[in-house]
């Protein structure tokens, strides 16, 4: 069976800058896969290319065997790719509830959506408390929860998470990672981009190391965590 998400030799440019130089990776159904790399390695670009915010100049991106590299961003959301973008990007002047409603934008409102509201509030009780508060007035951790919750409202098959730990206190980071594991255990695959490699390798099954737009290493997370080069470069040990 075709993997849930598969990238083959994807090249993306920002103008003349060659940001992705042939990225290939795959995510199987129900997996957490992490993408690790330093600043500017192309992690965010990879996610943006998958979700259609950037266009791949060549290469293929397949969702369940179906090509999506030419699809528009909103079509890709409909096909089941949820993206929680870098820097959270919540609608800061909308309330928490309105943000989540935007997440369900493509769905017909009805009992199904209401059920998902419940599910999101179950995962993030904090958001329930702040339901009518303007999203921009919340703490970074809460905004991160909201960004993830918003992406979940579209019922994604795969969730792309861009640096969910950025700027958060360690205790919050742990909380967020617990929730990611929980989301995954409910059946959503996750492609996790992280600078916090230690945490990412802790919850993911497999990982890819990205360097200057290229995948230089691919392995199970156990092995990556033991790899001396990885340990030196990304784990700081």
């Amino acid at each position: 069976m075709a993997p849930l998400l598969e990238l083959k030799d994807v090249h993306t440019y920002y103008g003349a800058v060659h940001a992705l130089r042939g990225v290939s990776l795959k995510v199987e159904e129900g997996e957490i896969v992490t993408l690790i790399g330093s600043n500017g390695a192309g992690k965010t670009t990879t996610l943006r290319t998958i979700s259609g915010l950037e266009r791949a100049r060549s290469g293929s991106i397949k969702l369940k065997g179906k090509s999506i590299e030419k699809a528009e961003a909103h079509e890709i959301v409909r096909l089941g790719v949820g993206h929680s973008p870098e820097g959270r990007r919540v609608f800061s002047r909308m309330s928490v509830r309105e943000n989540l409603e935007m997440g369900a934008f493509l769905r017909k409102s009805g009992p199904d959506v209401q059920k998902d509201f419940k599910k999101v509030f179950e995962l993030f009780p904090r958001l329930k408390e702040r339901e009518s508060q303007a999203a921009g007035t919340m703490s970074g951790g809460e905004q991160q929860m909201l960004a993830i919750g918003r992406a979940l409202m579209a019922q994604p098959k795969i969730l792309l998470l861009d640096e969910p730990s950025m700027g958060l206190a360690p205790i919050l980071v742990e909380q967020i990672f617990d929730i990611i594991t929980e989301i995954n255990s409910r059946g959503t695959a996750v492609l996790l981009v992280e600078q916090n490699a230690m945490m990412a390798l802790g919850i993911a099954k497999r990982g890819y190391i990205l360097q200057i737009g290229e995948v230089t290493l691919e392995d199970s997370c156990d092995k990556l965590a033991k790899n001396p080069k990885v340990r030196e470069a990304y784990l700081g040990v």
Partner: peptide, 17 residues
């Protein structure tokens, strides 16, 4: 509203901006 606030976020919510 969504586009005015954050076009990118609107796009990732499935809005055809």
């Amino acid at each position: 509203d969504a586009i005015r606030e954050d076009e990118l976020a609107a796009e990732s919510s499935g809005v055809n901006t």
